[in-house]
Amino acid sequence: MRLSRAEAAAGLPAAAPAGPREAPFPRLLPWLLTIGGALGLLAAFVLAVEKIALLRNPDYVPSCSINPVLSCGSVMATPQAEVFGFPNPLLGIAGFAMVTAAGAALLAGARPRRWFWLGLQAGLTFAVVFVHWLIYQSLYVIGALCPYCMVVWAVTIPLFWYVTLRNLAGSRAARPFAEYHSVVLAVWFLAVIGLIGVRFWPYWSTLI
């Protein structure tokens, strides 16, 4: 017994003395997945309901059509709102529900195998690419913002970011990103906010 303990202690690599390396963000990830997933789910659900209302009555003014720039109606009526032949929020309802459930499972102490995390990674990678395409479309092609869609943008980015960092843990290249995780996230968000600010500057400048 003693001998084995000594062996174990001596055998630990100096760089990782804390024992078997723990996955990063053990406390953050479960909550992020649960709360982020739930927010995304809520936004996608509201968008789907608004879309149905809009289909039923083309004159319907969605609850988030506030002014010329913040206008769901003009965004929801575009072809970009149903890229795959059906309304985008349907993807969100399915995807965010899964993310929420995964978060809840982690909170309950689940220790998923690697393939589960890779599955989550695949879904979130698709989501983050899609979201950035939608950001581009919204800003530069449609020229309007839809608040519920922006909630989806805002949760998808951190979900993707932290799940990716978790899955890349142990890789040397990912280490600085894991250490300065919130710097990257802040720059990411500020870049999107900056683009929105610049794009709709004439409008924002009339508000002050």
Binding site: R5, A6, A9, L12, A14, A16, P17, A18, E179, Y180, H181, S182, V183, L185, A186, V187, L190
Partner: peptide
């Protein structure tokens, strides 16, 4: 055993330092 304890403490303080720096840079940005 002593060495591993010292290493663990050192690693912990490094982690705290990184965390502090991460927050400081984020706030600055």
């Amino acid at each position: 055993a002593r060495r591993s304890k010292v290493d663990a403490l050192r690693a912990e303080s490094r982690r705290q330092e990184v965390r502090r720096r991460n927050l400081a840079i984020t706030a600055t940005v």
